[in-house]
Design a protein around this nucleic acid. Structure first.
Lengths: 212, 212
DNA sequence: TAGATTGTTAATCGATTAACAATC
DNA sequence: TAGATTGTTAATCGATTAACAATC
């Protein structure tokens, strides 16, 4: 029984943007906002904004707009960031360490509960108050931690193995920083973050004849 | 005179993926590859692959496939990663430091030439062999460095100011890690990397009724 | 009530994929 | 030549945006 009519990924991404934007408005003690005002300030088309929300219900009042606090709460519910989400970081290199210490995540309800690594030197070290754990013990540890989201921050050569281990340990969603295509079971969601891809797009647009 | 018929962004992103994938094949001493083989190994539709390349010319031989070395070189040319691209990192916090030390970038032709920060304590420190420079001197420094790509790794509150400074210093492409919407002149390209967005999409898909 | 703004339908735009003639 | 695979056109799919009746 599936009543939500398949929400586009871009809509979910924008929802996260709205959430943050609403937090800013909230701190400025604004009460309501209209979709045209959203467009002015974020550049996201007003119809787009209304359409995005329409996948999940009715949130505004015709003639008035949207109550900021209410809307932010509803978006938090939709994205399941109204509760704390346990996240584990796999790989305690530069990137894994940076993520473990990134304050923005916890603020938004993503709670990094453990960091794992394979290196003898790193295991046991403290990283922003978290002890680095042996990745060989991921399964036992996650049995206790119950994290469903994992961040893969290991070298490309190790990424598939780590992903397999994560899936076997009950993880259902992966944020993958390794520049490699992961093979995972159908039920598992993967988001690839590729610095190389981003830079390549930028680099392409630097060329003279790529100008619009 | 614009002969390239507006290339979709997803095509450029996939081009970066092909580039890396071809590097792997190359190290395995494979000579040629067909689009169906690409589909099998990467999951990217064979027609998609051919279409992506078709924006830039003809690269394959009917009945044979694509020469791996040639194709990789051509893609490098298209993305301008055949030459070294100078990149500056703005912000020497956890994330900026991690990026400065990320080996994958240099391998792909992205050469981090300097790191800038505003903090007294950080200026002058060494980061993976690079001295952290005073961001107040960005303009003079980049006059010499001539970087056209900048990575913004500062807190959201500082991001717009840093972006303005970068643009005034000759930067034309921005990779923005700050969770904020940057206002920049039309000519400037921005790619936003939002960990929050990624995690929100994952988080949403953990819910039972989000299953396809 | 008149003015503003919503939620939604329909039109548009753009990207993906299937099909196939051309070609090695 | 027969078989394989390209490059490209046309069909499909999906996302964005404009338009507007409903409603505060």
């Amino acid at each position: 029984m599936n009543n939500t009519p398949k929400v586009p990924i871009p809509t979910l991404e924008r929802l996260a943007t709205y959430f943050r934007y609403l937090a800013d408005l909230r701190s400025m003690a604004v009460e309501t906002i209209s979709s045209t005002e959203v467009e002015k300030q974020t550049g996201i088309n007003a119809a787009q904004f209304r359409k995005d929300l329409s996948y999940f219900g009715e949130f505004g009042k015709p003639g008035v707009g949207y109550n900021i606090v209410d809307l932010q709460n509803r978006i938090a519910q939709i994205l399941r960031i109204d509760r704390d989400q346990h996240v584990i970081v796999l790989g305690a290199g530069n990137l894994g360490s940076a993520l473990a210490g990134y304050p923005g995540l916890r603020e938004q309800g993503f709670n990094i509960v453990a960091v794992f690594d394979a290196s003898e030197q790193k295991i046991g070290q403290s990283l922003f108050g978290l002890a680095v754990k042996d990745i060989a013990r991921l399964r036992e540890e996650n049995n206790r931690l119950q994290a469903r989201i994992a961040v893969i921050a290991v070298p490309a050569s190790a990424a598939q193995g780590v992903a397999d281990l994560a899936v076997a340990s009950g993880v259902r969603a992966l944020m993958n920083f390794a520049p490699t295509i992961l093979k995972v079971p159908d039920k598992i969601v993967v988001r690839n973050v590729s610095f190389l891809q981003e830079l390549a797009v930028l680099s392409y647009h630097l060329t003279a004849d790529a100008q619009k």
